[in-house]
């Protein structure tokens, strides 16, 4: 009540607080710009280049990068243009990231919100299922799936989405439970609002923020898993490629043609770092503990 209503944001000195906030915002903005450039390049890149990602030209094998010449990123050991391959690989990596995130998002939100809102025995049961799934070594299963049932891209989406929905379900359920206890939801119940109305008018809009944040943080995780599978040779198959597959090829020839490793590795790393920073920034901005009211 009267005491303890300290004006918020316990940070260091005023200037440093402001600087910190700006640095944070700048970092956030920089990450958005960099990621934007990469996404644009990945979409437009393959059309700009005269080369195709699968054309083999052994005469030009392992050409170093020349920025004024034919091959901006050089060529690989089969003489394929690395720029186009990196962009094409990016398409796959980012698309897997996006689609599998959506899969896990839909599944996780529905599961979590249902459990959280219904509560009681159903909630208990649904969360037991999640607990059991947590105890399953999913990476092993994904690898098994890939090895045993061919390496196709739909299976990658399904497998990765199936791994990642657990976290989302837990977060959404916790948040829904918290919202259910809030007085404004009780107020809606008392008014006589129907269950769907409470879920869609009151709970879901208040869930959106956190879902967006965790979705943003799921994308890099998913990209990581896909590139990991591709690195093991279990992901997308030649001549199609992804950043993980390109890194794997790069490691084969890194002593003679390091650029084959460096370009895709950098693109992958930079994208993941940017995505993580953006998600983190969104989370901080959304965290009620760090804001007024």
């Amino acid at each position: 009540m009267a005491s303890g209503a300290a004006p918020n944001a316990p940070r260091h000195s005023l200037t440093r607080h402001a600087l910190g906030a700006m640095a944070r915002d700048k970092l956030f903005a920089a990450c958005c710009v960099v990621l934007g450039v990469i996404v644009l390049g990945v979409i437009v890149g393959p059309w700009l280049s005269p080369h195709s990602y699968y054309a083999i030209n052994l005469e030009f094998a392992q050409q170093p990068p020349q920025f004024s010449g034919q091959h901006w990123f050089g060529t690989d050991d089969l003489g394929r243009d690395l720029f186009v391959r990196a962009m094409q690989g990016g398409r796959i990596s980012l698309m897997v990231g996006l689609v599998a995130t959506i899969v896990s998002l839909v599944f996780g939100v529905v599961w979590g919100a249902t459990a959280g809102y219904l509560g009681g025995r159903i909630d208990h049961l649904m969360m037991r299922v999640v607990d059991i799934f947590y105890a399953i070594p999913f990476m092993f299963f994904v690898i098994l799936l890939m090895v045993l049932f061919g390496r196709n891209i739909i299976l990658i989406f399904v497998a990765i989405g199936a791994v990642n929905w657990l976290d989302m379900a837990r977060i959404v359920r916790g948040q829904t439970l918290a919202l259910r206890g809030r007085e404004f939801v009780q107020a809606a119940e008392v008014i006589g609002a129907s269950r769907p109305r409470i879920i869609f008018r009151h709970i879901v809009p208040n869930l959106l923020g956190i879902v967006v944040v965790y979705a943003t943080l799921t994308v890099p995780q998913v990209i990581l898993i896909e590139s990991f599978l591709s690195f093991l040779g279990l992901g997308v198959q030649e001549p199609m490629t992804s950043w993980g597959a390109l890194v794997q090829q790069g490691t084969q020839v890194m002593s003679t043609a390091p650029w084959v490793l460096l370009f895709p590795a950098t693109l992958l790393a930079v994208s993941l770092v940017c995505l993580n920073f953006i998600g983190d920034g969104l989370r901080d901005a959304l965290d009620p503990k760090d804001r007024h009211r």
């Binding site: 890099p220 990581l224 590139s227 990991f228 690195f231 993980g244 890194v247 794997q248 790069g250 490691t251 890194m254 002593s255 390091p258 490793l261 590795a265 992958l268 790393a269 993941l272 770092v273 995505l275 993580n276 920073f277 983190d280």
Partner: peptide, 17 residues
């Protein structure tokens, strides 16, 4: 944050290189 984002199979070859 970079350590979290950059996968082991990128770090390891680069470190070896």
């Amino acid at each position: 944050m970079t350590g979290i984002s950059v996968p082991g199979f990128v770090i390891a070859p680069l470190a070896v290189l």
